[in-house]
Nucleic acid binder design. Structure first.
Lengths: 157, 157
DNA sequence: GTACGGTTACTCGGATACCGCATGTCCGAGTTGATGTGG
DNA sequence: CCACATCAACTCGGACATGCGGTATCCGAGTAACCGTAC
């Protein structure tokens, strides 16, 4: 079970975008340059964020990506879901259907005890992610390293 | 982010083993037969469980797998970790090292705010998994479907 | 000075290769139980 | 009847193929800014 590397890129990039002028878009190439990431591949993930409504993309000169809404309204879960997709990590294949006493007409994704236990764990994970926003991350970073915000803003100029 | 299908197999198989005579080992072929699973591939996962100390394997006639300890002492986290490995799903690549003001001598896996937030979510997930045991699953199943235990015991005879 | 049309450069977007890991399978090593024999 | 050596069958264990999704890249479509020209 490995989460896509793009999640890390996306989260850091969203924090970086929260430090820029909200009206101004930043090209993917500039955003990738900050962390020395492969431009095209980062762009692919940013496109996913745009499809999910987290970012807004603009083409042409002075175009690029910008946050679609206030950083306080973008949760970590929003970003993770945009990159990883909405499906759970644990996917019940309903093997109980082939087990002793298994019924073909029962949806074991809902009734199977194992499936429920795994789902409960994932809900706890999602709840933790939904409880923090990009603004929270930004605030913590600013408290720990006051130089981060200006330095990033400069790098994205 | 997709969890190995083997986790589902392993969890159900552990519950099934908890219904058998603790002293008796069950061959992988028999365990696979219950859910119509590919024998060799299930065996591969059971070997991982044995390496992790969840199961005990015995070779030769009358051999097979059996639980290494009381079902109440086997948490879901034990099983998941045995199959998926000990690493977190989110793995901090420390891209901050290449960012503005990044220092090569800092371990960003510990200090990066994004990494910490993701880690906090995974800890919540692990805590939920560690809070439930194979015995808990078994008890719930027995309450919901009293016929399950005898039927499985018969299938593993 | 201003409005406007053409041009240019810039950016995203999706289509296209590549690679590593999960999936799936197979045969050999080791062990246990059974069996037959001799005492 | 019992002990023991041999045999045979059974089981795990790791080594060997295969497919799919994450990784990485590229080129084309579309757009906005710029510039020159005409009024």
């Amino acid at each position: 079970m490995k989460m896509s590397e793009g999640v890390e890129w996306a989260l850091h990039t969203c924090v970086n975008l929260s430090w820029t002028d909200p009206g101004e878009a930043v090209p993917a190439a500039r955003l990738a340059e900050v962390f020395a990431l492969p431009t095209a591949y980062l762009a692919k993930h940013l496109q996913a964020l745009a499809r999910a409504g987290v970012l807004i993309s603009t083409t042409g000169p002075r175009g690029g990506f910008r946050l679609a809404r206030d950083p306080g309204d973008i949760t970590l879960l929003d970003v993770v879901t945009a990159i990883e997709g909405p499906e759970d990590a644990f996917r019940c294949r309903q093997i109980l259907k082939d087990g002793p006493g298994g019924r073909p007409d029962v949806d074991y994704r809902r009734t199977c005890t194992v499936s429920q236990a795994m789902r409960r764990a994932e809900l706890a994970w999602r709840a933790e992610l939904a409880g923090q926003t990009i603004a929270d991350i930004r605030r913590t970073v600013e408290q720990r390293d006051p130089a981060a915000a200006p330095a990033t803003r400069e790098a994205l100029r």
